Simulated assay, not measured.
Amino acid sequence: MGSFIGHVVPGTFFILFGMWFIYQTFMRYFMCLRVAASSTMSEKYRMRYRNTSTFKCPCCSSLPLEGILKVVATVVGMIGEFATGFEDGKFTHIGNAQHMTMFFFFGLNGIMDIIQHYRVPIPPDMDFVSAVLAFSMEALLFYYHLHGRTPMDVQVHMLLFYVVVCCAVCVALEMCYKSNVLPALGKAYFILLQGTWFYQIGFLLYPPVGQEWDQNEHSQMMMVTLFFTWHNATIFTLMSIAGSLIYLKVKTLSYAEIYEHLQPRLPRLGKLDEEQAKNIILESDEEEA
């Protein structure tokens, strides 16, 4: 990971997952609100929204694509770190071993997602627990990964450490308060921030073009802090815009389309009128409860 590409690759995956979680969380939340608002039992179903650690892909809801992607990505990452950790025929780069360990925990989270998808009898919420474990181990490894680094190197990775801790906290809150959308949005926010900050670290420490930064210069380190605040402002603004656009989109959907999105594993029933689709959504939710 000690290169520009080594930061861009994990950053890309975090950005993609962050955007996916933002879209799916807003879609589910606004759809649930619309069903609740139109129901004669609106008070009962107002908190119908439920957090889940993963979302089903509408195009292939029978497969745990999120879990599969996590496993594939982490395996590729571990192979890459292992292959580049040798020098003169000996594995000498301990930093690569730490990165491989970090990848392993996210791969374990992907396996838990797959197991949960196929309803294997394991303790509940293991997908959430494994995600908290993965982010916690990532934070631990980054915190003790900075010995002998330059001041700017330590600074950018400590900021990343704080973001990863926030990811772990949000996932834990998401697991404990499944009817509250805020922890889910917080998780999406910090995962996206983690991805963009990985990119920023790559450009700061390993710039592919232009002049290298003076990693001991105080004024440039102040700029790094400023960049971090700009990342936060940009992501918050983009999430606000995305939420507004998704809200407007949900208002245009028919109840049949809402039914198909909220219940992707159930058979499609063809054209439904509004009352039929609404009743099916509410009945299926009551069965899950």
Rank of each mutant, 00 (worst) to 15 (best):
D214V: 01
D214F: 04
N216K: 11
N216Y: 15
H218G: 00
S219M: 06
M221Y: 05
M221A: 04
M222S: 11
M222W: 08
M223K: 08
M223T: 10
M223E: 11
V224P: 03
L226Q: 06
F227R: 04
F227I: 10
F228D: 03
F228M: 05
F228G: 06
T229S: 15
H231L: 06
H231T: 04
N232W: 14
T234D: 10
F236L: 15
L238T: 06
L238F: 08
M239V: 09
M239C: 10
M239S: 06
I241K: 03
A242E: 10
S244W: 05
L245E: 07
I246W: 00
I246S: 03
I246N: 00
K249Y: 15
K249F: 02
K249M: 07
K249A: 08
K249E: 05
K249D: 09
K251R: 13
K251L: 12
T252S: 14
T252C: 08
T252L: 13
L253I: 02
L253D: 09
L253S: 10
S254C: 02
S254F: 12
S254V: 03
S254H: 15
Y255E: 04
Y255A: 09
A256Y: 01
E257M: 02
E257W: 01
I258E: 06
Y259H: 03
Y259S: 05
E260G: 04
H261M: 10
L262P: 07
L262Y: 09
Q263N: 12
Q263L: 13
P264A: 02
P264N: 01
